[in-house]
Amino acid sequence: MEHSEIIIGGDTAGIEWRLPVFRFKGSDAKAPSVYIQAALHANELPGTALAHFLLEMLRKAEADGAILGDITVVPQANPIGLAQSHFGEMQGRFELGSRTNFNRDFPLVALAERETLLENLDRRSAADRLKRTLLHAALGADLVIDLHCDDESLQYAYIDDAFWPEAADLAAALDMQAVFLSDGESSAFEEAVGHAFKHQGGDKLKTVPGRLAVTVELRGRRDVYPDMAKADAAGLWQFLAGRGVVSDPAYRAKDYAGPAIPLDNIEMVRAPEPGTVLFHRDIGDTVKAGDLLATLITRPGEPDGTLAVKAGHDGLIATRTSARYARRGEDLMKIACHEATRKDRKPGTLED
């Protein structure tokens, strides 16, 4: 194993950021190569815990000669966000200087243009250098897995249509309860990788066999427990074994039995008015159109001071906010539905 650091110089004198990187050299040149990163949103830590236990497994596998493909693991990919603590809470999702989401505004380049990502880095901001460096590293692999989590959530993933259903093995290995089929039209990290994989020269490819770019949502932000992280690491190990990245005689393939839902079928349940949130339904619940999801206390103490929030479609509650006060228009839930929930959704991500 090679343990190194990526160093990102700060935008003011005397500051630099360091990212640990772990690399394992595979013994089979024909085996797929893998890049795994966690905590690009610095306050999303289930992936960091998973990576910690996965690295234990990989070190043992290396000693046993079981590493077939090259593996790169970046267990804490965003030291800039990790250091942004304000009023007692980490601000790991948005870069405070630019107010930009750390998982947006990645350059969209063709795979053959990979090296251009590192041109004139010294002229760019620290956040931009971080993004370009991570994307450059990822584009050197065949399989790219970006570990995130939601607020309160089931285990699910965003997977571009170009990688589905081949990626069903990852969904099965990690016991995902849903897959959201994305359109690959944003500048998020995973979709920037997918853009490069689909633009290898000539026309855009509709499918990319043997490649993968995926965002895995490892439940919610508070779901950071040793047994859970170990189980997730074992699941990711099973995926690596199935793809021939590691050797494991005990590997047994599993089928994915959950739903694969286009983003057009995701109902974003939002607060129509500001108020205190009283939830009636939880993640994992199956609901019918018209079911009561939450009550908003909009004018406390008044006889007509509440507002009912109901499901617009049948489906599975995949996520829920942990906040118990909602501003007008804020997201309360995502429901994975059996039919399209709207026809005017713009291509790209569901949230900023």
Rank of each mutant, 00 (worst) to 15 (best):
E190D: 15
F94D: 09
H313T: 04
A241W: 02
V208Y: 03
E152Q: 14
V193L: 12
R104I: 05
H148R: 06
H338S: 14
V179D: 03
V74T: 01
D227H: 08
N265D: 10
E267D: 12
G140I: 06
T321K: 04
V193K: 08
A196K: 09
E119Q: 15
L181I: 15
P274M: 11
D175R: 05
L212Q: 03
S182T: 15
N265C: 15
R129S: 00
E191D: 14
D150T: 01
V109H: 11
A271P: 03
A63Q: 14
G26L: 06
A39H: 02
R243W: 03
G312D: 01
D105T: 15
G305T: 11
P249D: 09
V216P: 02
A29Y: 01
R18K: 10
A294H: 04
F24V: 11
P209A: 04
R252E: 15
G10K: 02
R252S: 12
T306E: 09
K60R: 13
E44P: 06
Q91M: 10
L212P: 04
P32I: 05
D285L: 10
H136W: 13
A162Y: 00
V34N: 04
P20W: 02
L54T: 05
K254M: 12
L170R: 06
E273D: 13
M57G: 12
Q177L: 11
D291A: 13
T306I: 12
P165N: 01
P259C: 12
E89Y: 15
D314A: 06
H41V: 07
G65T: 06
A49W: 04
K30C: 06
G97T: 10
S33H: 03
L170K: 07
N78A: 01
L278V: 13
K204R: 15
L82D: 07
A229M: 01
V109P: 08
R222Q: 14
M228K: 13
L108F: 01
F197S: 00
Q177S: 14
R221A: 15
S186D: 08
D105C: 09
L108Q: 09
M228A: 14
A63Y: 05
T306V: 11
K25A: 15
R18E: 01
R281S: 10
A250M: 09
G201C: 06
D151K: 08
G81L: 05
P274F: 04
V287D: 06
E267L: 09
D64K: 12
L170G: 03
S322Y: 12
K310N: 13
E113S: 13
S153I: 04
V179T: 08
R327T: 14
F22G: 00
I283Q: 07
A172P: 07
W164T: 00
S4W: 02
G290C: 07
Y256V: 12
A311R: 08
G315K: 03
H195K: 06
A231D: 09
L139S: 02
L55A: 02
V193Y: 09
H136I: 09
A66Y: 10
V21A: 05
A63H: 09
E119S: 13
G97K: 11
I317S: 06
A318R: 02
N101M: 08
S187C: 14
